[in-house]
Amino acid sequence: MDHTKHLWRVVLILVLAGAGAIIGRHFLIPKSFGEQGFYRYDSLGDYMTQPVRHGGDAACAACHKDRADAKAGGKHATVSCESCHAPMASHATTEAKTADMPKNRDMTLCLWCHQKLRARPETMPQIEISEHLAALDPEDAKKADVCFNCHDVHNPSMK
């Protein structure tokens, strides 16, 4: 009598389980996986369809040519509109305006770039705010938008 019957049953179970796993796995591998490498190629599409939020200065200039021209001729030519205002997406689509663009006139915005910092390259115009405002009326100096008294933000030489 063959005494290895139970072992052959085990082998059969293992073979069936293994084949089942391999076949099952085959149907679970996502489409486009491995087309270009060890990843799901369609994932690139997921990223490409994400909405763009910053439009860039040229997009702003399409409607606001006056502002763009003023900026282009001055020292803030390289400062992007959206870095002081807000991303284009919160204001307009390519077709129409959807909401007002915020106008933040707080000096914090100016100081992000112009506060005197030891690590800032010396070619960058920097101020120590208390010294800079020393000549002003103390009441004026307290206002958050005091910078705008003297500077035009789009072309920031003295008014």
Partner: peptide, 15 residues
């Protein structure tokens, strides 16, 4: 195949 594939040209574009 998907293990062996490096960069096969001619795969469909995502979008």
């Amino acid at each position: 195949v998907y293990i062996a594939s490096g960069a096969e040209p001619g795969a469909p574009l995502p979008a």
